[in-house]
Amino acid sequence: MKPYTLWILTGLILLLLGASLFFGSVTIPIRAVLAILTGQETGQETWEFIVLHSRLPQAVTALFAGAALAVAGLMLQTLFNNPLAGPSILGIDAGAGLGVALIMLLFGGTVGNVAAGLSLSGSFAVITGAFLGAAGILGIILFFSTLVRSTVMLLIIGILVGYITASLISLLHFISDPEGVFSYTMWGMGDFSGVSLNRLPLLCGLLGIGLGIALLLMKPLNALLLGERYAENLGVNVRRVRIGLLVSTGILTAVTTAFCGPVSFIGLAVPHIARLLTGSSNHTLLLPATLLCGAAIALLCNLITVLPGASGLLPLNAITPLIGAPVIIYVIINQKKIQYFN
């Protein structure tokens, strides 16, 4: 047990959170940012707007979304007894995408506030669509998990279901209007900046519920490390716990995807980073560590997206694979040496 890792991670998050407020595509002097944050007048209303209404909600969104995706990935990996499971691999965020596509493409630009910009993300209809889509795919995967015992086969089924979802989305593109397709494509690139200050409490509240359920399930998650039969023998009501895990994973993935688009690799890679950092599979340590790691890495990715400065934002989904994929490759190559694989 290395509980101090949690403190180090918390420190890192605070550092990154600060950095996200001080750096962005518009250069604002550090002293001015400090003044704005402490509530002093700077005389620059645009700066105030940028710091409080753009950078702050964006950083908080990144923090919560990263934590949510990482914890969802960890729960799926334990539930499916497979360290390579994750929301994107199992097609769950593709499902959320299908729900969003149905809403956006079928109703075109009339839903939400597409006309006003690209911040269609976060409208109630889109969240509902994403949640139903994610829950539907989770249900399908769960149904197959009762038929197929092999987890590798189950992952392949997840990938295939993802393909089917993707082709359904392409078909929808064909019949929908150009504006709908455009806003869907923008949504698909992933973005932490689409959540306004007004919507932020909704995002944080929903993800807080999902994360809360996950924290309540730490004990049965540990029992599930031994497989379902052992868990049952340890007094775990496997059926109820599985439903709890899926509801929590569904909320975390669907809400994040609805607000930020399908953010890849955080759910798959961060639990591995957390395991390597803590050296433990014990969820009482691993789950909080994964939560903090996810928040830190999402904040880091968010910082990288503003690197080009005034010339614009990098798409989020261009950054996350650069960090996530090497971790997965490292883990696969070293799996004989990594304890939790054996």
Partner: peptide, 17 residues
């Protein structure tokens, strides 16, 4: 669970504990 304990042949993912 407090009365019957089991040791099975099932594969576990407990290598990291």
């Amino acid at each position: 669970a407090r009365r019957i304990g089991l040791v099975l042949t099932d594969r576990t993912m407990a290598g990291g504990l």
